[in-house]
């Protein structure tokens, strides 16, 4: 027996007075540095600002760090996506509370990451898999009533640059596996940016920390 499923869905705009800013990009693109910089800049200007990230520091995020990212336990990719979704639901509740209170929220990753990383897992047919993931995600977003960010900065860097930066931070790293994966994730992001040009501001992340930071601030006030 076949079951027919149909409904309408759309993303939810931020209804609160607090602004919701997201910084996305591959590992090593400079997200954390820029997010923290931005938070400090905005604080200096007298704004109420918070920094958040995914995975979170809550029990679900800790679980992901300890069990998944550490590579300690082998978990199927789809299960990982669901663990991340579980953590994102926790994250979203936190973000929404801050926005309600009028805070500007700067988030180091958000649900765009799920598409880019999901594509990284699924392989090369981006149009087919991308639509599939987006449909799944928009279903998820409807399920959660996720708020779409007011502005998402995508820090665009070469995979080589990203690897160089990661190497500085972490002593031992499996570069070959990492390079291939990063490359796929980067292409996942590029696909997303093309699909949703209005949602993303692309920033050239190859430049120095200061320069990138300046551009983010100037784009924000524009």
């Amino acid at each position: 027996m076949q079951y027919e499923i149909s409904f309408k869905t759309d993303f939810r705009c931020n209804p609160y007075k607090g602004k919701f800013i997201v910084i996305e990009g591959v590992d090593g693109s400079g997200k954390t540095t820029q997010a923290l910089n931005l938070v400090n800049r905005l604080k200096g200007l007298g704004h109420k600002v918070v920094y958040t990230k995914e995975p979170t520091d809550e029990s679900t995020g800790q679980f992901i760090r300890e069990n998944v990212l550490s590579g300690k336990v082998k978990i199927p990719n789809i299960a990982i996506q669901y663990l991340i979704a579980a953590d994102r639901a926790v994250h979203h509740e936190k973000i929404e509370n801050y926005l309600k209170e009028g805070y500007t929220v700067v988030s180091d990753r958000y649900f765009w990451s799920a598409v880019a990383y999901g594509l990284g897992d699924k392989g090369s047919d981006f149009d087919k898999n991308g639509q599939l993931l987006l449909a799944s995600l928009s279903i998820l977003s409807m399920y959660h009533r996720f708020i779409i960010p007011d502005l998402t900065f995508y820090l665009q860097v070469l995979v080589d640059t990203a690897i160089q930066r990661i190497q500085h931070k972490k002593a031992r790293i499996e570069i070959y596996e990492k390079r291939e994966k990063l490359d796929k994730i980067a292409r996942g992001y590029e696909w997303l940016v093309k699909e949703f040009p209005k949602e993303f501001v692309v920033i050239d992340g190859e430049r120095g920390v200061e320069e990138v930071g300046e551009e983010i601030v100037s784009r924000l006030s524009a």
Binding site: T60, P76, A79, I80, Y82, A86, A89, V90, Y143, H144
Partner: peptide
């Protein structure tokens, strides 16, 4: 944790 989060944990556990 929020209820939606718990539902995703169930699914992750079920996949495993």
């Amino acid at each position: 944790i929020p209820s939606a989060s718990l539902q995703h944990l169930y699914t992750a556990d079920r996949i495993i």
